[in-house]
Amino acid sequence: MKITNPARSPERRRHDVLARLERETDVWVATADDDGLPCLVPLWFVWHADAVWLSTRITNPTGRNLRDGGRARLALGDTQDVVLLDGEVTVFAPADVPEAAGALRAKTGWDPGGDGPSYAFFRIRPYAVQAWHGTHELRGRQLMRDGVWAV
């Protein structure tokens, strides 16, 4: 593949990341258990109040890993348009987060609380964000560090 477009500015990358978080519906969620066994699944999400919110059963491997590990890596896009977010996880019952639950329902049409009591909500507050389009954008890909936007 020949790269013909110039690298985006950091400000443009941040704008593009935030636009994708608003627009996209699915995110890859990477977690690991206490033994380091990795788990990678796609889940619906919503960007709400400067955090990624998603829901899954607390009883499945991803739910347990999010609850017990307290952190996750999220990925949007393919290898030519990458967004990676590393974040700290907080667990909530659906009834405890009516705004986030409503935002997820409005975006996806799905109400996890209506699917049974084993569903929980997970807020993932990013502490690191990277974004790049191809190898020519690897330099400058770190847009957030320690929870603070660099741009």
Rank of each mutant, 00 (worst) to 15 (best):
M1T: 10
M1S: 12
K2T: 13
K2A: 13
T4F: 10
N5H: 14
P6H: 00
A7S: 01
A7M: 02
R8E: 13
P10C: 04
E11A: 11
R13N: 09
D16K: 09
V17I: 03
A19G: 10
L21R: 05
E22R: 15
E24A: 07
T25C: 11
D26R: 15
V27H: 02
W28L: 05
V29L: 13
A30N: 00
A30T: 09
A30M: 08
T31Y: 04
T31L: 08
D34L: 14
D34V: 12
D34M: 11
D35W: 06
G36E: 07
P38V: 01
V41L: 03
V41N: 04
V41Y: 01
L43R: 10
W44C: 15
F45E: 06
H48E: 13
A49N: 12
A51L: 09
V52S: 09
L54I: 08
N60M: 08
P61E: 04
P61C: 03
R64L: 14
R67M: 08
D68I: 07
A72D: 00
A72N: 01
A75E: 14
L76H: 02
G77W: 11
G77S: 13
D78M: 09
T79I: 12
V82W: 01
V83K: 11
V83P: 08
L84V: 14
L85V: 00
L85H: 06
D86Y: 05
G87L: 00
G87P: 03
V91F: 10
F92C: 08
F92Y: 13
F92D: 03
A93C: 02
P94W: 01
A95R: 01
D96Q: 08
D96V: 03
V97K: 08
E99W: 09
A100L: 05
A101W: 00
G102A: 03
G102S: 05
A103Q: 02
L104E: 01
K107W: 04
T108S: 15
T108A: 03
T108Q: 06
T108P: 03
G109Q: 01
G109H: 10
W110A: 01
D111T: 15
D111A: 12
P112M: 06
G113T: 07
D115P: 05
P117A: 15
S118G: 09
Y119D: 09
A120R: 14
A120S: 12
A120E: 12
F122G: 14
R123W: 11
R123G: 09
I124C: 12
R125L: 01
R125I: 00
P126T: 02
Y127I: 13
A128G: 05
A128C: 00
A128Y: 00
A128S: 04
Q130D: 08
Q130K: 15
Q130F: 09
A131H: 11
A131M: 05
W132Y: 07
T135F: 07
H136R: 11
H136W: 10
H136K: 15
H136Y: 12
E137L: 06
R139K: 11
G140E: 06
G140A: 07
G140Q: 05
Q142P: 00
L143F: 05
R145N: 10
R145H: 06
D146A: 15
D146I: 10
G147E: 04
G147A: 01
V148K: 11
W149E: 02
W149L: 01
A150D: 10
V151S: 13
V151L: 07
